[in-house]
Simulated assay, not measured.
Amino acid sequence: MMSNEIKKSWSGLFLIDKPEGLTSHDVVFKLRKILKEKQIGHTGTLDPMATGLMLCLVGPAVKLLPYMGNENKKYELTLKLGVVTDSWDMTGRVIKELNPESLKLWLKKYSQNRSLVQVMENLIGSLTGELDLPVPMYSAKKVDGKKLYELARSSESDDLETFEGPKKQMRFWDLEILNWDWEQGEIRLSFWCSKGSFVRSWVYELGKKLEIGASLKVLKRLAIDNYLLGSAKSLDVVRETIESSLSNSYLSLFELVKKFENFEIDVTEKNKIENGLLSYAFLNRLSSLCFTSENIMLIHNNRLVAVLQIKPEIRIKRVFKED
């Protein structure tokens, strides 16, 4: 049983390996029970069918959620050829499917002809860079104040375009084809994508270009920016090791802050900033330095004092007062 002292000490980042079948909210709920901590937030929602890395901020560190960076993500995925569902993954209702014999002939033709395989590889490789792709209707994106999935659930149409949401710019890069399974009609690959990009949209677009359709079958998140799945722990492991060693699956608030651009301030500056003031001396000292980030962390004696916006204008975004 954790003591009250230990319960109050959580303030940092947990790297969690989400299992299949849980929503991101389920993960947060279970982590709250394990840590006995109500303040928990996460970056990057994963669908229930997906597995892999989730970043969960705990305690006062939750306040850093808006400053966690670009949140570029790397995924490994398996797609199924010859089938399209209303959700663009294999959990949805099938609305178009190539009959098994036609799919078998199509796969045989490609698998036995290296030049055709090269054509397909080139086509897959062309789906990188900035792309304008439709958002899946089964998503939480809102149009005219209404979530797209609410509109999708009310439709019984078998028209593919019914399930194409509004187009959105997405970016994909470092694509690698990992395996062709010609027997099952599946392709396994990996790529990086920008924040707000939909993997299901990419799979749907590939299916359209191949003219036989495709749906997402398996999805695993491998990385979020510089955080890697290899450093994450399952909820069960966190529960078992909570009173011993969590190694690199947990970063304290200060360890997390050190991953941002930061600036050491003196006690006089600290006192002014905690009261919402920026002195001319501080601004002059700051102007002599070059930062690449929009926000920097102000620290004093190994403690986070504030988040300071420096682009496009300098202003205090959030103050972290001592307990």
Rank of each mutant, 00 (worst) to 15 (best):
L256E: 06
K141I: 15
K38F: 03
L229D: 01
L253P: 03
F320L: 12
K167F: 07
N226E: 12
V218S: 11
D47V: 09
L222G: 02
N271P: 00
L229W: 04
F260E: 02
K8I: 05
E5G: 03
S115E: 14
N295R: 11
R200Y: 06
G52Y: 09
L175A: 04
G207E: 01
R32N: 13
G21Y: 07
D132H: 14
I40S: 05
L105M: 13
L246P: 00
I296N: 01
Y67V: 09
I310F: 01
H300R: 10
T91K: 08
K272D: 09
P100I: 11
S115H: 09
I40F: 08
K147F: 07
P19H: 11
K208G: 09
T51E: 03
K258P: 00
P136M: 10
L283P: 03
K259F: 02
A50T: 03
D181E: 09
H300I: 00
L235H: 08
P312Y: 03
E211C: 05
T78I: 14
M120D: 10
K147H: 11
T91M: 07
N248W: 04
S293Q: 14
T91N: 13
V117Q: 15
E76I: 15
S197M: 09
L77Q: 00
N295C: 13
L103H: 11
R318T: 12
N295E: 08
Y67F: 15
P312T: 05
L210V: 10
R239H: 11
C290M: 12
L175C: 05
G69K: 05
S234V: 12
R153C: 12
K63L: 05
E264A: 14
L298G: 02
E5N: 07
S231P: 00
Y250P: 00
S293M: 06
S234K: 12
T51I: 00
L256V: 12
D236I: 05
V257I: 15
G41R: 05
N275F: 05
S9F: 01
E183Y: 13
S24Q: 05
T23I: 02
G207M: 01
V143Q: 12
L116S: 07
P100A: 12
C290T: 15
L53W: 03
K104L: 11
Q112F: 05
S252I: 11
T78Q: 06
V28K: 04
L133I: 06
Y75R: 09
L229R: 01
K209R: 15
S102T: 15
Q39M: 10
I310Y: 02
L175G: 06
L127I: 15
C56R: 08
L298C: 13
I177N: 06
I212A: 04
R153N: 12
W10H: 06
I299P: 00
M297Y: 02
R315F: 08
N284Q: 14
K317N: 11
N275A: 09
S154Q: 14
I265T: 07
P60G: 09
D323T: 13
M297N: 09
I95F: 01
I265K: 08
S231V: 01
L178P: 14
S197D: 07
D89V: 12
K217Y: 04
S252C: 11
N179C: 06
V119I: 10
R318C: 01
F282L: 14
S293V: 08
V307D: 03
V135T: 15
N226M: 11
H25L: 10
